[in-house]
């Protein structure tokens, strides 16, 4: 039986305290209802637990966390998955700015659109490869300074049909990882020195496996997603600033 919690009357700090107490007693499943701007939920929690959240979590959902799998029936505010280490955040709505900043592992699956500066400075190390999949569109600076990991942008479930799939400065300064985009972007949207590439068969395999999990999470049909071609954006060098200096 999951622990059911109606959090409306509580400050975020109290909610986290209750969660931590129950984790230390062995509770592994949580259902939070009435979440309304509560910040930092599950921040720094290091445990293999799962949570279902109803409502709109506030800033930094799951920041620094290692392990929890959080499903949000609602949208999330800025900073979800900030410097997250391991675990998963599934968002049935939209997400705000700076999602997955400096994320080093785990997955973030978002059904709808995201704001600005998503996936900045994600990084990968050994078997830790963070993944962000965005069902809708993204604002400026997606994947800026990216040092590793994978961002997949679908542009399908959006409330902004008039907007381009991604904003400007896409992948600026990226020096690791890859961004996959369903459809096309104009070259002037890309960060300096970047170019879109066609996918090879390895990319396709990888993409399919990630998308399969994404579709399972939201009950979507993968063949619908794969109907359109993807492009790939990867760094043109792992040392973007190697030649900047005079000694």
């Amino acid at each position: 039986m999951p622990l059911e919690l109606e959090v409306t009357p509580f400050h975020y700090s109290q909610v986290n305290k209750i969660i931590r107490e129950h984790i230390s007693k062995g509770e592994r499943e949580f259902v939070l209802r009435g979440v309304n701007g509560h910040r930092y939920l599950f921040a720094g929690v290091s445990a293999e637990v799962s949570a279902v959240i109803y409502g709109t979590p506030g800033l930094d959902l799951g920041a620094f966390m290692r392990g929890p799998v959080i499903r949000v029936f609602g949208s999330v505010q800025d900073g979800a998955g900030n410097t997250m280490d391991h675990g998963k955040i599934i968002v049935h709505g939209m997400a705000g700015d700076v999602i997955g900043y400096a994320m080093r592992g785990g997955k973030i699956h978002i059904f709808g659109d995201v704001g600005y500066r998503v996936g900045i400075h994600m990084k990968a190390y050994m078997d830790k490869v963070p993944v962000i999949i965005i069902g809708g569109k993204a604002g400026d600076f997606l994947g800026e300074y990216m040092a590793g990991g994978i961002i997949i942008l679908l542009g399908m479930n959006t409330i902004y049909p008039e907007r381009p799939i991604a904003g400007l400065f896409l992948g600026t300064g990226m020096h690791g990882g890859a961004i996959y985009i369903r459809g096309k972007v104009r070259e002037n949207q890309l960060g300096l020195g970047l170019k879109p590439y066609a996918l090879d068969s390895d990319d396709e395999k990888l993409l399919e496996s990630y998308l399969k999990e994404y579709c399972d999470d939201f009950g979507l049909d993968i063949s619908e997603i794969l109907k359109e071609d993807f492009i790939k954006i990867i760094p043109y060098t792992h040392r973007p600033y190697g030649k900047l200096y005079a000694y």
């Binding site: 080093r104 190390y125 020096h175 792992h238």
Partner: peptide, 11 residues
């Protein structure tokens, strides 16, 4: 926690 030989850039 970054690969050997890659630049470590702090924005």
């Amino acid at each position: 926690m970054i690969p050997v030989g890659s630049d470590a850039l702090s924005p």
